[in-house]
């Protein structure tokens, strides 16, 4: 039932919230004021299933079924850019918002992505089925898993997956230095 100002009631949060918080290792929390962060789950898969089944029996939304293979990568990218990239970065590398850190998505499973969108864990906003339908959720999960597992690092050195502009800046810096050295070596001192 929860304790006021300590922990929320779990009646009605459903299997969705329980599975997300336990399977990502966010819960149990070491102290009530900490931000839950992703870590190794504290319980075995079987124990998590039992806990989720118990919380689910108290009522609330079920674990969503997410199938990235039914999604569209292009639509997923557009939706992610519009709704998610403000905090998570277009590369899914995470970042910060005032008062909290934003997790990277490179370990998030499609089911966990769907759960997070519907739940809005910690300070994340939530999106209902009227705003992001099943197909759009599948598409976002496809984009996130694709872009974080197979990042497009054409330059060879990812530099935080920030794209060609920072890579180019570093290339310019290195090339300028090299050119200076060459100019210094080939130049003739005025006498």
């Amino acid at each position: 039932m929860g304790v006021e100002h300590q922990g929320p009631s779990l009646v009605g949060v459903g299997g969705l919230a329980a599975d997300f918080e336990l399977s990502t290792g966010r819960m149990p929390l070491a102290a009530p004021n900490l931000q839950p962060i992703r870590s190794d789950p504290s319980f075995s898969g079987a124990d998590i299933r039992r806990l989720v089944a118990y919380i689910a029996s108290l009522g609330g939304p079920a674990i969503p079924s997410i199938d990235p293979s039914r999604g569209s990568l292009l639509e997923g990218r557009d939706l992610f850019a519009l709704q998610c990239a403000g905090c998570h970065q277009i590369s899914g590398a995470g970042g910060v918002v005032t008062g909290a850190t934003v997790p990277a998505l490179d370990q998030a499973t499609p089911t966990q992505i769907g759960e997070a969108v519907r739940l809005g864990p910690y300070l994340m906003p939530r999106f209902g089925p009227e705003q992001l339908d099943q197909h759009q959720l599948d598409s976002i999960a496809l984009y996130v898993t694709q872009t974080t597992r197979h990042p497009d690092d054409a330059g060879g050195l990812p530099l935080g997956h920030l794209g060609p502009i920072p890579e180019g800046m570093v290339a310019w810096l290195v090339a300028m230095g090299a050119l200076l050295v060459v100019a210094r070596m080939t130049g003739e001192r005025a006498s």
Partner: peptide
């Protein structure tokens, strides 16, 4: 582009 919204406003 960012909205933060607490899941558990007490904490």
């Amino acid at each position: 582009a960012m909205l933060r919204y607490p899941l558990f406003p007490d904490r």
